[in-house]
Each structure stands twice: as structure tokens, then as C-alpha cells.
Computed example of a mutant assay.
Amino acid sequence: MTPTAPITDANPTVEEMEARVARFRALAATNDYADAGIPGCERTTWRVIGTPPAAPLEAEGFHLNIVCCEPGKSAPLHNHLTQEVFVALSGRWEIFWGPTGERHVVLEAWDTIAIPAGVSRGFKNIAAEPAYLIGIASGRDPGNINWPAQVRAAAEAAGVRLP
């Protein structure tokens, strides 16, 4: 028999729930994504859910970021030890994957894709205007990222040190 969630009398106050709200206007953009220094990979990222203090809201087992890219900008091919889900909020996004990023699909607003753990992936804004994307990574530490040789070479050529 599959367990079900019990019905409880839990009723947090408005103040308690406000402490669990991340207001976009109050979020600070991150500047610690090393691969964002690679030409063509510039992007703005806001951590929303994950591990404080980097993210204002704590969650166990997943992390959520909001990303904004100018037209033609991307996150380069990379790999996590975890699953990653992308949700297009606006614009058009090419989600690419594989050892050299040779396969892709296009997401439009509200389209969603789930990339399995162990599959190299990246994304690119293919719209004519800045666009927003949500990235959700599973696991306690999805930050253990690795990049294929061609991305490491591009980073080195640009003077960017990838961990």
C-alpha cells in the first residue's frame, strides 16, 4: 500500500510563510559561475532555492535558479552528477546535449525538459530579445559540475579557470 500524506492542523502564520518567500526584486545575481566568463556564455543567474546563504530559500534535494541571457548567449556544455530540469519562462531556448552537444530541442515559453544525470547539457537563448529560463537541479550538491575538453579549451583561451 502506498502511503499518503496525512491531513494535519498545520497552519503557519503569514509571517512564517513570508519567511519562505523569495522576492525576485530582493534577489542578488550571482557572479560565481566560472563558465559565464567564457565569451558567448555570459548570463545572469539568481539562486532562489538551495543551500543558504547562496540561496535565500532552503530546500533538501533540489536547487532552483532563474537565468537571463541576451540573444545568442548560452551556458556551455557541462555535466552534473544530478538530473537537471529546464523551464523556459520567455523567449526561445535551444537545449543541447551529448558528448559534443550535437543533439537539441527548442523550448518556447512554459516548455519543460528533464535532462538525466550523467548527460552533458547546455542551453542557448535563440530569441531576438533577452529571455528567462528556470533551471532545477536535483540532489544535495548539484554544483559538482564538469565540462568537456572543448569547453575547457575555450575557457583557457579566454583566460577563464574552470574548477
Rank of each mutant, 00 (worst) to 15 (best):
T44G: 01
T44W: 06
T44F: 02
T44I: 08
T45V: 15
T45Q: 14
T45N: 10
T45I: 15
T45E: 08
W46C: 11
W46E: 03
R47A: 10
R47I: 14
V48K: 08
V48S: 05
G50F: 04
G50K: 05
G50Y: 02
G50M: 06
T51P: 07
P52W: 00
P53F: 03
P53N: 03
P56Y: 03
P56D: 06
L57P: 02
E58G: 09
E58C: 09
A59N: 08
A59H: 03
A59F: 05
G61N: 02
G61Y: 00
G61E: 07
F62D: 07
F62S: 08
H63N: 08
H63A: 13
H63Q: 11
H63Y: 07
L64V: 09
I66K: 12
I66N: 12
I66H: 12
I66Y: 12
V67E: 08
V67N: 08
C68Q: 14
C69P: 04
C69L: 11
C69R: 04
E70A: 14
E70F: 05
P71L: 07
P71Y: 06
P71S: 10
P71E: 03
G72N: 00
G72P: 00
G72R: 06
K73N: 10
K73L: 10
S74Q: 09
S74N: 05
A75W: 09
A75Q: 11
A75C: 15
L77G: 01
H78P: 04
H78N: 06
H78W: 03
H78R: 04
N79V: 15
H80F: 13
L81T: 13
T82F: 03
Q83E: 15
E84K: 00
V85W: 01
V85T: 15
V85Y: 02
V87W: 01
V87A: 10
L89E: 09
L89H: 01
L89S: 06
L89V: 11
W93D: 04
W93I: 05
E94W: 08
F96V: 04
W97F: 13
G98Q: 04
P99Q: 10
P99C: 12
G101K: 01
E102N: 00
E102A: 05
E102F: 03
E102Q: 04
H104I: 10
V106H: 07
V106W: 08
L107T: 00
L107Y: 01
L107I: 05
L107W: 03
E108V: 11
E108P: 09
E108W: 09
E108F: 13
E108N: 13
A109K: 01
A109E: 06
A109S: 14
W110N: 09
T112E: 14
I113C: 10
A114W: 11
I115D: 00
A117T: 00
R121V: 10
R121Y: 14
R121H: 14
G122L: 07
G122F: 02
K124W: 03
I126S: 06
I126R: 03
